[in-house]
Structure formats: structure tokens, C-alpha cells
Amino acid sequence: MTIMRFVATGALVLAASPAISSTLPPTALLESSGVLSLNSGSGFEARGDLRAEYRAPPPRARPYIFSTSLSFGTLNVTPDVTITTPEIVIVDEICFGSLCSPAMTLPSQTINVSPDVPLLGLGTVFEGSVRSPDLPLGDVFAFDYGTPLLGAPLSFGDLVQNQFETGDATVSVTGGVGPFNSVFDYDGELQPGGDVILAEYALGITGPGILGDIESFALDLINDNTDQLTGLAFDLFLGTDPCGGYGVFEATCNALLAGLDPDSFGVTVNSLGTLSADYTLSKSIVPVPLPAALPLMAGGLGLLGLMGWRRRRDVVA
């Protein structure tokens, strides 16, 4: 009887303990980071690294959290820009009676440059999380870029899932849609243990008027950052030492330039040049952990049942 009271008390303590959740590793995970670049001459390219993980799901049924996010870092543009500087009067016309010395001026100049301009980044463009009673493992690896870009079905899902089954994978696919030509290369290696893949990939697209909408978007970004571009143009102009040949008036010329408003410079963006941006893509399926107290409670109740059965058996005996 004393033993029964001890066991019952222990079970109640277990049942009353707080629900402590343990962190479970993702059942499936895909993380990719790389750089997107766009050039009117060489076309579009996405090049990056990929890490994929897959582990057998827990044996018991439980809900899952399916999460995905896509973010971009700073956009960098090297546009073809024409800078037009204003004419600057260094020394005004000086007259002594009817004799006048001509004014000394720094003439207007036209300079073509391709500055590296960091633009406002897009930040996180998508982030979402869904709780589901199902286990959509295929969804975490699925990313179909082949059909719209290569003209044939091709996705990371095919490559990664097959690689978990077969080992190393090297894929090179060439195709195209309409006037566009695309090349995709993938080189992945299944790590020891069989649950992690490390891969490198590159996707290139060329064609006439390549991705004009993206170029137009980038030019809009440049126009939204004209103050920054004008400042860069001003610094580039000063770097040419425009007052270097004016002898005794060089100091006067430099003083005038130092007080010049950069907004007086004319800036014309002739073409996009090259647009590049780093990106990060993450997709995961993680099982929701069960409260740690539930298994303990179940164990305590099981002991209670066992001891009750033994007690009834002793009474009968």
C-alpha cells in the first residue's frame, strides 16, 4: 500500500510538470544563396550554392511547419552615364579703359563613365509559414525553372530528390524558349551520412532584348537615386584635376569647384550596363515538437495502471 502511494505521487508530479518542448531538426531543408546579374550584352545569369537536407520523419503522426523565404541584398548597377559639367568663370573680364582682358573660364565638359552605384535593396520579398497536418516533402525541393526558361521540365526538386537516392549528380542542360537560349549546370555531392547535399549551380539566359522589363525596372531605380549618381559624377569630375593647367589661378579654380552645387551637373543614363544582386532562398519542413510532459504523463499513467492491476491481482489471490 505504501508503494502504491509513492508511485501515484510520482505520477502526479510528472503530470503536473510544465510542457517543455524540444527542438527538432528539419525533416527537409533547402538553402540557396548566390548572385543574379543582368547585362544587355551577356544576358541574365544566376549563380550560387545550395545546401539540401533530408531526414526520415518522426515515426508518430504530428503537425509540420512549412516555411519559405526569399530576400535580396544591395543592388549594384554600373550604368553607362554621360556627365555634362557647367561652364565655370574663374576670372571675370577685366577692363582698363578701352583695353579688356578676356575672362578665364573652365569650359563645359562631357565625360562618359560607368560608376558602380549601390541602389536601395529589395530586402525580403517573400516570407511565409504554414502549419499543416500533412508532410509535403516534395514541396520543399520543388522549384520549376526549366519549363518557362529551358522549354523542358526541370526543377531542383528532380535533381535533389534523385540525388538523395543515387549519390553524386552532375547535370548540364541546354534549351530555350522562342528567341532565348538557356544553359543550366548543376554539380552536387551527397555528403557522408546520406542526409546532406552540397551543390553549385549556374543558369544563363541570352537573347535579343533580354529581360527588358527588368532593365526598365533597374533604370527606374537609377532615376530614383539621381542624387547619389550626381554626387558620384561630381567626385569623378574632381578626380580628373580640371584646374591643373591654370597656373596662378589654380587655387581660385579649385575654390570655385569646392563651392559648386553637384546638382548643376547634367547626368544622362545611356544604358543599364550591369545589374547585380545577391539573394538568399530558404525552404524547410520542420515537425512541431510535442510537449515533453506528454510522454512523461503517459508513462506515469501507465505505471498507475500497472500497479492497480497488480493490486487487484493481490486481492484476488
Rank of each mutant, 00 (worst) to 15 (best):
A61E: 13
E87D: 07
L75I: 14
F66A: 04
S71K: 06
S69D: 10
I83R: 01
L70W: 02
N76H: 10
I88L: 15
I90S: 03
T82L: 13
T74D: 06
P86Q: 07
I88Y: 09
T84P: 03
I90V: 15
E93I: 02
L75A: 13
T74E: 12
T85F: 07
V89G: 02
V77F: 09
T85C: 02
E93T: 11
E87P: 04
G73K: 01
V91A: 08
D80T: 13
I90W: 07
T85W: 03
G73D: 04
L75V: 12
P86G: 07
I88W: 11
L75C: 04
P79D: 01
Y64S: 00
S67V: 04
N76C: 00
A61D: 13
I88K: 10
F72W: 07
G73M: 00
V81H: 02
I65C: 05
I83C: 02
E87G: 07
T84F: 08
V77Q: 02
I88M: 12
T82A: 08
E93P: 01
R62N: 03
T82E: 14
S71C: 04
E87W: 11
V81F: 01
T78G: 03
S67Y: 08
S67N: 10
S69R: 13
V77G: 00
E87V: 12
L75R: 12
Y64I: 01
T78E: 10
E87I: 09
G73I: 03
T74W: 06
T84N: 07
V81N: 00
V81C: 04
T82I: 12
T74C: 05
N76E: 06
S71F: 00
D80C: 01
P79R: 05
P79S: 03
S71R: 02
V81Q: 06
E87S: 12
R62F: 05
L75Y: 05
N76R: 12
S69V: 05
S67K: 11
S69F: 06
I83D: 02
F66W: 15
I65T: 14
N76D: 03
E93F: 06
T85G: 06
I65M: 13
A61Q: 12
I88Q: 06
S67T: 14
S69C: 04
T78C: 04
P63W: 11
V89R: 15
A61Y: 13
I83L: 13
T68C: 05
V91I: 10
R62G: 11
R62V: 12
A61F: 12
S69T: 11
T74M: 11
I65F: 13
Y64P: 01
A61C: 00
V77P: 00
L75N: 08
E93M: 09
S71T: 05
T78I: 02
I65H: 09
V91M: 11
G73F: 01
V89L: 08
T78M: 09
I88E: 05
I88T: 14
I90G: 05
D92E: 15
F72I: 06
S71A: 13
S67F: 05
T68S: 14
P79A: 03
D80M: 07
T84R: 03
D80P: 01
P63K: 07
P79N: 07
D92A: 14
V91Q: 04
R62D: 00
T78Q: 04
I83N: 00
D80G: 07
T74F: 05
V89Q: 13
P63G: 08
T82V: 15
V81G: 04
V77E: 01
L75E: 07
L70D: 03
S69P: 06
